[in-house]
């Protein structure tokens, strides 16, 4: 099988958000960058399919030089090679999706995996946009995946409000991975060593455009720390009263 996984690099989940000098983006001076957590589920899904059906796993990332790190991290988990679409201005989801779609177009991919969302801009958009740009079916927020190579079908479960939905796709297709799909493996020492000699091809994108523009970024209004009503169950009547009279919830 020809399997692709699109991987992104994001500030880690502990990041304290400070607005940068431009007033539009995060201050990147003290940020620790990691492989986007959801992309680990996507990588694991691809590696499991390769283990089962043999084939090749390729990672693709759009971004500046540091994006090589996430490709290496993925290669340390397993897989074969990387494609680094190098740009210092990846732009919005639409722009990233255009660059990815251009790179993935004539590759003969059977399945292209994505994370369900990047934890920086939380767009949940790139995977499904790439699917549309390549004319492929997709399932998003997938927590279970069965692929039948001979009939070229994938059966997925995706999370919806109050339950799950079973989706059938014809291959080639796009899957966006949600936590719960699998337990991503840790890179082994051997894997980390092996990753160093796996090839990463660098390509220069062209023609991508952002359709959106961030006008301003700010911190959400700080919540006032609330009232501590007490230190045992004698505080319960006060809580009930506040929920009724102040919050007007009951």
């Amino acid at each position: 099988m020809k399997l692709f996984v699109c991987v992104n690099q994001v500030p880690d989940t502990e990041t304290k958000v400070k607005v940068g000098q431009d007033g539009k983006t995060i201050d990147r001076s003290e940020i620790n960058l990691i492989l986007n957590p959801y992309d680990e589920f996507a990588i694991e899904a691809a590696l499991q399919l390769k283990d089962k059906n043999s084939g090749e796993v390729t990672y693709v990332s759009v971004g500046g030089d540091s994006h090589k790190e996430v490709i290496r991290k993925a290669l340390a988990m397993g897989g074969d090679k990387g494609i680094h679409i190098k740009t210092d201005n990846a732009g919005d989801s639409y722009s990233v999706a255009m660059m990815l779609a251009a790179a993935l177009k004539d590759t003969g991919a059977d399945i292209i995996f994505f994370g369900k969302q990047s934890i920086d801009y939380d767009d949940s958009a790139v995977g499904t946009m790439v699917a549309e740009m390549l004319g492929l079916p997709s399932a998003s927020v997938v927590v279970k995946l069965d692929v039948d190579v001979s009939s070229k079908k994938a059966v997925c479960e995706r999370e919806i409000e109050g339950g799950k939905e079973t989706v059938e796709l014809t291959l080639p297709c796009v899957i966006t991975a949600q936590k719960g799909l699998n337990d991503p493996r840790y890179p082994s020492l051997k894997g980390i060593m092996a990753a160093k000699s796996k090839p990463i091809q660098e390509i220069t994108p062209s023609g991508a455009e952002s359709l959106t523009e961030v006008v301003a970024m700010r911190k959400p209004p700080a919540k006032q720390p609330g009232k501590i009503l007490g230190t045992d169950k004698s505080a319960v009547p006060e809580l009930v009263k506040l929920l009724h009279e102040e919050a007007k919830i009951i």
Binding site: G127, T128, E161
Partner: peptide
């Protein structure tokens, strides 16, 4: 921005060459 809306909006945006502001 429901499960269905989040699944559809990026696809529709790509079809229409429209920018998307999510959530």
């Amino acid at each position: 921005a429901s499960a269905m809306g989040k699944d559809l909006a990026p696809r529709v945006a790509a079809k229409l060459k429209a920018g998307l502001a999510a959530d």
